[in-house]
């Protein structure tokens, strides 16, 4: 789907460039920031976080483990050290509070790759491309877990582009770069939001956490909506917006698929979307916009 209207232009005109790119910039800073924590060690000898996204140790005290990797290890019938379980529990609790797929949009190194592919696709690629069901990823996740149990081995880490790409960035290597390039081409030419939105088992797993998480995006100002569709155009999971924006019920985007990336809040010229808790049912209109502030 190509849009005559370029999403974000209206918001930029009304609210200024920075306000219309606030969360995008913050997300890029966050992604680079997490990477920097792992790179200061090998680059400058200043060790903050060691390891990879699969498992890490920060400042020699804080163990973190990706709960999906840990779950696969348990299904493969490994009896782990306590540190692995502690690390997985900390990550699990963190994302139960801070929005499950916030991992995808604020941490994951593949996100800038697929964001770029999505941006270029909106601009230059005609047509809908391959249609995948959004639920495909959950079956893929099932396949990963089943394979771990059957083989007695952590199955997805054999080809997981998320952890492999991160490992390449931190330890060196090429496999992850090749995978990232393949995903980029897939998202650009084959399927819209193809990988993150339809295939990635890591995203699917965090999506399951996201179904119960506290931090969410709310269409609090939905009464101001002028039906410009900019939010739908930029959203990597457009299905999640409608119930909150068009519904009569809670304005909170409850679907776990929402990555809480905040792009909808950025591109909305009416400043409808805000970060909120999942229990926040406030619908306020009109919202104070930055332009009114300034």
């Amino acid at each position: 789907m190509t849009f005559e209207r370029i999403p974000g232009v209206a918001a930029t005109a009304r609210r200024g460039w920075f306000a219309a790119h606030k969360f995008l910039l913050l997300r890029r800073l966050s992604q680079l920031g997490f990477l920097a924590l792992f790179l200061t060690g090998p680059w400058f000898g200043l060790w903050i976080a060691k390891g990879t996204l699969a498992s890490s140790l920060t400042l020699n005290v804080l163990p973190l483990t990706d709960p999906l990797v840990a779950l696969q290890s348990l299904l493969a019938r490994h009896v782990p050290e306590a540190r692995m379980l502690t690390g997985a529990a900390i990550v699990l609790i963190a994302y139960l509070l801070l929005g499950g797929r916030t991992f995808c949009s604020w941490v994951c190194p593949i996100n800038p790759v697929t964001d770029l592919a999505g941006y270029l696709r909106r601009r230059f690629v005609e047509g809908k491309g391959l249609i995948l069901k959004p639920a495909t990823r959950y079956w893929g996740l099932g396949g990963v877990l089943l394979a771990s149990a059957v083989t007695g081995s952590i199955a997805y880490e054999v080809i997981n582009p998320v952890t492999t790409f991160w490992r390449d960035l931190v330890f060196g290597g090429v496999a992850g770069l090749v995978m990232a390039a393949m995903i980029f081409l897939f998202d650009l030419f084959v399927a819209k939001n193809g990988f993150c939105g339809h295939l990635c088992p890591v995203g699917a797993f965090y999506g399951l956490i996201g179904a119960k998480t506290v931090l969410r995006v709310s269409a609090r100002g939905r009464e101001n909506c002028d039906d410009c569709l900019d939010c739908f155009a930029v959203c990597p999971e457009p299905l999640v917006i409608a119930p909150a924006l068009r519904g009569k019920d809670s304005p909170v985007i409850r679907s776990g698929a929402c990555t809480a990336c905040g792009r909808c809040a950025d591109v909305c010229s009416e400043h409808i979307f805000v970060y909120a808790t999942r229990f926040d049912r406030r619908v306020e209109s009109p919202l104070k916009t930055e332009s009114q502030n300034g």
Binding site: T52, S73, M84
Partner: peptide, 14 residues
Amino acid sequence: DFLAACLRCGLCVR
């Protein structure tokens, strides 16, 4: 057993 347990985190390398 190693492939069921190794998280591929690289902490041993570090």
